[in-house]
């Protein structure tokens, strides 16, 4: 299986405070890979480094088969194979259509193709009725579905999801989980999912990395980790003691 991300000894500090010290992480193509951990454990920083939004201080970073040089041309090339959805996604001022078409317009796709793909993506998320609605006026759940459609429209190889359901109600949350699974299976999109909800991790992810104070303290197949956690901190996290 192809490895899309290879990280060695990636560190990141803000001033005196080291927020990330990831000794080793690999993410394989086709998987849903979960980064699990409590708030402040460095999950988002790790994800932002992988998405090339935050530079790492030290370490070795290989993304989609390339050693990251941080050259703008390389960043563009790599980022155009990725997409991201955050916990409360930012919507550009304008309609849902404008937002979902954004990535396609940036790639200078022909108008017809944009139209078709925007419709497909919205349809897949059940949001086609909202195509002309102002994007800033959607509910939390609707916003997240549009954000996923927007990410999907550019057909990414990798989809980063940073707590995509933590701001919305449980039933919408379950609905979105179904879409995530569907996307992974239908398009074999690799998904890196951040969550602090270990049930969600268990429902969705094949692989899970457990983060603690910036370190990856345990990783492996999700099922194994939940049935037989090695690290005492993982054990207590899963039991809900944190």
């Amino acid at each position: 299986m192809t490895v899309l991300f290879k990280l060695f000894d990636i560190t990141k500090s803000y001033g005196e405070r080291q927020v990330l010290n990831a000794e080793h992480l690999e993410i394989r193509a086709g998987n849903i890979h979960c980064l699990l951990g409590p708030n402040g454990s460095g999950k988002t920083t790790l994800l932002r480094v992988m998405a090339l939004l935050t530079t790492n201080d030290t370490g070795d970073l290989e993304v989609l088969g390339e050693q990251v040089s941080w050259q703008p041309s390389q960043l563009l090339l790599l980022r155009r194979q990725m997409a991201m959805v955050t916990q409360s996604s930012f919507m550009f001022e304008g309609s849902v259509f404008y937002n979902v078409a954004y990535g396609l317009k940036a790639r200078k796709k022909p108008k017809k193709e944009i139209q078709k793909r925007v419709q497909e993506s919205l349809e897949l998320l059940g949001m086609l009725d909202f195509i002309d609605a102002p994007a800033r006026y959607l509910s939390g759940g609707e916003t997240q579905k549009v954000a996923i459609a927007r990410a999907l429209a550019v057909r990414p190889r990798v989809l980063f999801l940073d707590e995509p359901t933590s701001n919305i109600d449980p039933s919408s949350s379950l609905e979105i989980e179904q879409y995530i699974k569907h996307i992974n299976q239908q398009y074999s999109t690799t998904i890196v999912l951040i969550t602090h909800n270990f049930f969600q991790a268990r429902r969705l992810a094949q692989q899970t990395s457990m983060l603690w104070d910036g370190h990856i303290i345990e990783q492996g197949p999700t099922r194994d980790m939940f049935h037989n956690p090695q690290d005492p901190r993982t054990r207590r996290f899963i039991k809900g003691e944190y």
Partner: peptide, 23 residues
Amino acid sequence: EVYDTAVMLGATRTQAVLSIIRE
């Protein structure tokens, strides 16, 4: 997040800056 959203959707730097101006 405006910049992040734009570049993560594949915008070039110029396109992202134009989006910031638009916002």
